[in-house]
């Protein structure tokens, strides 16, 4: 599931940090990394960037990774998505960085653009990995609406069973429009959650279920904060009118969450 990562890299980051991040993604099962450095048109030296990428490749070879790399000029989000497609990456690993409100307001966010545009799973790593920690991920929320994308993300979730121990299955739904429909909805949700709980109990040590009514992004963020989780796994294919107007749940959670996010389209 996570065999090959596309890793957009900022060449200002230290070699030590790159190695720490590479070690972290190896816990997910990643064996090959395609490093990509993108420069704005007319700025920077492509040859210099390529040499820096070569140095990184040599260093990470010694850690047992298969490495490819490329320095390109272009728009970051489009280039990342295209490169992930061309190189048949299993997923895109995006090292998250805290940016202030003004930065988002004026320049937008490459991460948001990538998760909107890509057809590949995206792992947005919000916290800098701790080099001394044996396991980078232990507590995970699996947010599901029982739809197709949530089903797909379940496969990715299961492949994390070697490193993750504690799973919370979270369903955030809309209330039924009358008491009878609501009762039906609740029964339906409980049945689905029970089924999922049984299924995931085979792979994970501890499985909890939560169901709530309201805005999915709000509930996911609340639960993530409350349970101090390391990762939220959710589907990201939202194309309804509401999503077009106010943004998708995936974008909202990615923008506001303090923990890492795995989005599966």
């Amino acid at each position: 599931m996570f065999a090959k990562a596309l890793f957009p890299i900022d060449l200002n980051q230290t070699m030590e940090e790159t190695i720490t991040r590479a070690k972290f993604i190896s816990q997910l099962g990643t064996k090959y990394i395609h490093f990509l450095h993108i420069m704005p048109p007319g700025l920077g030296n492509l040859g210099h960037a390529q040499r820096r990428l070569d140095d990184i490749a040599v260093m990470l070879h010694s850690y047992g990774f298969g490495i490819t790399r490329k320095a390109r000029v272009g728009s970051p989000a489009d280039t990342i998505c295209q490169e992930a497609k061309d190189n048949d990456a299993s997923y895109i690993y995006i090292p998250g960085r805290c940016k202030n409100v003004m930065y988002y307001a004026l320049l937008g966010s490459t991460t948001r653009d990538v998760i909107r545009l890509t057809e590949k799973p995206a792992f947005v790593h919000k916290k800098r990995p701790d080099p001394w920690k044996q396991k980078g991920l232990s507590r995970v929320i699996y947010a599901t609406d029982f739809e197709e994308t949530a089903e797909r993300s379940l496969t990715y979730l299961k492949s994390l069973s070697s490193t993750v121990s504690d799973i919370t299955i979270l369903h955030a739904g809309q209330r039924g429009s009358d008491p009878v429909s609501e009762k039906r909805r609740q029964l339906n949700v409980n049945n689905n959650l029970e089924h999922l709980e049984k299924e995931l109990a085979k792979d994970f040590a501890e499985v909890k279920v939560r169901a709530g009514v309201g805005l999915p992004d709000k509930l996911i963020l609340e639960e993530a904060e409350l349970s101090c989780v390391d990762l939220v796994v959710l589907g990201s294919l939202n194309q309804g009118l509401k999503q077009k107007i106010i943004g998708s749940t995936a974008e909202e959670v990615t923008g506001k969450s303090k923990c890492s996010i795995l989005l599966v389209p």
Partner: peptide
């Protein structure tokens, strides 16, 4: 038809 009646036996009054 998010929660079809066939799933559960709850009838509207």
């Amino acid at each position: 038809e998010m929660y079809p009646t066939s799933d559960v036996n709850v009838d509207a009054p």
